[in-house]
Amino acid sequence: MLYRIRKGCRLHWACWDDVYVVFEELSGQTHQMDPVKAFLLHLLNDGAQELDALVTEFASVPEFADSVRISALLTKAMDELCTHGLVEATYR
């Protein structure tokens, strides 16, 4: 399964002290994001990716070296992003 930024979404960012605020132009909604979700959106902004590929990307950051923990973390974060309507899951 691939994850991608939901079609039509246009994201605008503000950031203070590692806490991000993102405005989504299509829905007009504003969301607060932790660095994990912000980084996920940043990665997906370059194109759709599978969860495993995202886990690998995160694993290159020393704070996220534990891949089992990352996988659970990203699954939860991705669910939340899907709930907010910012990300959608799709099949190849």
Binding site: A14, C15, W16, D17, V19, Y20, V21, T30, Q32
Partner: peptide, 8 residues
């Protein structure tokens, strides 16, 4: 308080 939560 955090600027992000203040903005929201």
């Amino acid at each position: 308080r955090s600027k992000a939560s203040s903005m929201l």
